[in-house]
Structure formats: structure tokens, C-alpha cells
């Protein structure tokens, strides 16, 4: 006679990713590399923002970038214009980066030779939220053209991020972007989150962002 038995398991489904991310975080800390990841919807200006950031910091720090996309190496080519080492992770059909992909991409880079690593996730406001990449800082971007209520529609990704950046501020007036409403949306899903307002095109707000980032390097929050 067959019978059903209840077996207790208690195991995190993403254990494999979490364990790997923890290992990466320890490796980054030991090598003194500050790692920041960037998440947003497609077209919010992640690559332009990163290109600007990399260009501004490259004379002072040894910086590299990893960039994830479903297909093409276009973004890596764009980021390479900042004249820093860049690697493209082509995920195929996968809609997010995982710790394993980051780990694999680092194989021929000596972490001790680096100060900072930027990871640009696949443009997606849903899936990347579940996957820890071992980063010290997760930055979520939203552009003025996307609407003020983006955080209310995708609360999980905003909640798992450490800071938010509102991009394309140069277009704010043209699209009648309500900055106050945008800040309220962000605070509703992640109270006390620090927010930067920038335009990668005009350079508006970049100084404040770079100052914040450089303080992180100095603080040794790596």
C-alpha cells in the first residue's frame, strides 16, 4: 500500500545563486574592488549614464564594466568609448544576470588590478530583482520619459535597490515630468532612499552623483 509522507526540506530556491554571490562579495572585498550594479527598464539611459560616469572617473581609478544584454555587443562597444576595459555578457534568452555569469566573466580579469567594477544588468524591471550579483551597491534608474509612477508599478526592484537615479532630466520640461510625484513614488516603495537627478547629455547632476560614488570608494564600503 502506498502512502504519502511529508518531508521537511527548508531550502532557498535561489541558494546556488546566493552562495555564489556571497563568494563574489568576499572576493571583491578582499581585492578592494567597489562593485555597483545598474538596473532599469530598456531605454532608460543606463548605457549613456554609465559611459559618462566611466569617462569622468577613468583618470583617477582603475575601472571596468560588465554589460548584460539578450543579444548584440552594441552596449559594450558604446561603453568602450569611455576607454575602459568592457566585457559584454550575452544572455541569450535569459532576462537577467546571475552571479554565475558575473563569476564566469571575471575569469581573465585580475581583481587586484581594479578599483571599481560596474555591472549593467539586462534592461528589465522585474527579473533582476531576485538575483544577488555580489554587488556593494544596486542602483535603479528611471527616466523622465517613463512617467512618475514607475516605482509604484515595479515596487520590488526599487525596494531591492540602494539608490535611485532619475535620468534624462534635460527632457523633464518637454514631457511635463512631475519631479515631486516621482520622488513621492520612490519614497512610497523604499522610504529614505537617496535619489539623484541627472542628465547624461548636459551633465546636469553628474557632479553630485560622482561625489557620492567616490565617497563610497574612500569609505572602503567595498
Amino acid at each position: 500500500m502506498t502512502q504519502t509522507r511529508l518531508v521537511e526540506v527548508r531550502q532557498n530556491v535561489l541558494k546556488h545563486n546566493d552562495v555564489l554571490a556571497r563568494e563574489l562579495r568576499i572576493r571583491f572585498q578582499k581585492a578592494g574592488v567597489f562593485v555597483a550594479s545598474f538596473v532599469s527598464s530598456p531605454g532608460s539611459g543606463k548605457t549613456a549614464f554609465l559611459e559618462k560616469t566611466l569617462t569622468k572617473l577613468r583618470s583617477q581609478y582603475r575601472i571596468t564594466a560588465l554589460v548584460g544584454d539578450l543579444a548584440t555587443a552594441n552596449d559594450a562597444a558604446r561603453l568602450a568609448r569611455a576607454e575602459v576595459p568592457v566585457k559584454q555578457i550575452v544572455t541569450g534568452t535569459i532576462c537577467h544576470l546571475e552571479a554565475q555569469m558575473v563569476s564566469d566573466s571575471l575569469q581573465d580579469w585580475d581583481l587586484n588590478e581594479l578599483d571599481c567594477l560596474f555591472i549593467e544588468n539586462v534592461g528589465n524591471l522585474v527579473c533582476p530583482s531576485s538575483y544577488d550579483l555580489g554587488e556593494a551597491l544596486r542602483v535603479v534608474l528611471m527616466s523622465t520619459t517613463e512617467g512618475e509612477d514607475k516605482p509604484l508599478k515595479y515596487p520590488t526592484i526599487f525596494n531591492t535597490a540602494d539608490v535611485a537615479v532619475i535620468t534624462k532630466m534635460d527632457l523633464a520640461e518637454a514631457v511635463e515630468f512631475d519631479l515631486k510625484a516621482a520622488h513621492a513614488s520612490i519614497q512610497a516603495v523604499r522610504p529614505a532612499m537617496q535619489v539623484f537627478e541627472v542628465s547624461s547629455k548636459t551633465g546636469e547632476g553628474m557632479d553630485k552623483w560622482l561625489e557620492f560614488l567616490q565617497a563610497k570608494f574612500v569609505d572602503g564600503q567595498v
Binding site: 504519502t4 509522507r5 518531508v7 521537511e8 526540506v9 527548508r10 530556491v13 519614497q187 522610504p191 532612499m193
Partner: peptide, 21 residues
């Protein structure tokens, strides 16, 4: 009051299996 500190709600955990013997 704003409440940034999350105590619970991020779980993605298998707790048990029902196995036929």
C-alpha cells in the same frame, strides 16, 4: 510613519515535499 526595514516578504523557499512511498 515610513517603514524601510523589511522583516519578512522576500522568501522563496521550499519548505516540504510530499513523497509517495
Amino acid at each position: 510613519a515610513p517603514t524601510p526595514e523589511v522583516m519578512q516578504g522576500r522568501e522563496l523557499e521550499v519548505t516540504a515535499l510530499e513523497i509517495i512511498e
